[in-house]
């Protein structure tokens, strides 16, 4: 009897142990170690020469211009990508709402960028954005619009990266929104029609509130994802030109060998910023989100 009760007590813990082991090893421990590292001037060649420097790394972060530059780039990138993707994905989903065969094909088409590797996507766009021989400039020239330097000018490089990221993300999020739209009972729209509601009113008073949980989810997920952007920048610009596209994660990456303690402190800062942002989202918006 006593044996059984002990087993009963520990059984749940045994059950979740495998999952917890994974989380501890791959999430909790690295996070703890990251925070630990951020307080050291870490010596890669000789660990024993690593020095505890208290908040020196953090002090450095907040006094260095290049960190603020990277933070600013990341903010512009995030706002650009999140806003553009959400608006375009919503419009696409509304456009795809009618269940025709053509729409099914289009929906499959716009989803394809999501399943293509970001490396391929970046390389293709890199090629298309080439200023003298690229397709985009050829297109602009043929339309009589002055060509752009795209990735090769510090003024347009970040915007170019945003375009690629948005292009890649639209299909996936349009799919989520379009599923949400289809979930709305058609009789609600019929009731609105009988209530003499204008199209704008139907959209803002009925459609938007009804899909707000999904929109909120997309907002949070995309913000976090955009803050952590790395791959597109690494492949397309390498942070350049002149640091115009250096984002926070790319900034951290550039210190991966030269100053581990500093990179770790930047990582912790990034984590704090994302945590804060998500918290703010929930505080400000959760009351506007209608869960049913």
């Amino acid at each position: 009897m006593a044996n059984r009760t002990t087993w009963d007590r520990i059984r749940p813990y045994v059950m979740i142990a495998p999952a917890m082991a994974g989380i501890l090893t791959f999430v909790i421990y690295p996070m703890g170690y990251l925070i630990y590292l951020s307080f050291y001037k870490y010596n890669l060649m000789n660990r024993a020469k690593s020095k505890y420097v208290e908040f020196d790394n953090y002090k450095q972060i907040f006094t260095r211009g290049d960190f603020y530059k990277a933070l600013g780039n990341t903010l512009v990138y995030t706002v650009g990508v999140v806003a553009l993707t959400m608006i375009l994905a919503l419009l696409t989903a509304l456009w795809l709402k009618r269940n025709t065969r053509l729409n099914a094909i289009i929906q499959g088409g716009i989803f394809i960028p999501h399943i293509v590797s970001i490396v391929s996507v970046s390389l293709v766009w890199l090629w298309m954005m080439e200023p003298s021989h690229g397709m985009l400039n050829a297109l602009l020239r043929s339309l009589g619009i002055p060509p752009s330097h795209w990735l090769q000018s510090s003024r347009t490089a970040l915007v170019s990266v945003i375009i690629v990221a948005v292009w890649q993300a639209i299909g996936y999020y349009a799919l989520i929104i379009s599923a949400a739209l289809r979930n709305v009972s058609p009789s609600i729209y019929e009731a609105a029609a009988l209530d003499n509601a204008s199209r704008a009113k139907v959209f803002f008073r009925i459609t938007l509130p009804l899909i707000s949980p999904q929109l909120f989810f997309i907002l949070v997920i995309m913000t976090i994802g955009s803050f952590k952007v790395f791959d597109i920048v690494q492949i397309m610009t390498g942070g350049g030109p002149n640091d115009a596209t250096t984002t926070l994660v790319y900034y951290i990456y550039s210190y991966r060998t030269t100053n581990i303690g500093y990179a770790a402190a930047s990582g912790v800062t990034l984590m704090a910023i994302i945590g804060l942002l998500t918290f703010v989202y929930f505080r400000l918006l959760s009351r506007k989100v209608h869960y049913q």
């Binding site: 009972s185 009789s187 609600i188 019929e190 009731a191 609105a192 008073r205 009925i206 509130p209 009804l210 707000s212 209608h290 049913q292």
Partner: peptide, 9 residues
């Protein structure tokens, strides 16, 4: 309506 079709939000 049969399912009332109230505006849930």
């Amino acid at each position: 309506f049969q399912n009332y079709a109230l505006y849930p939000t």
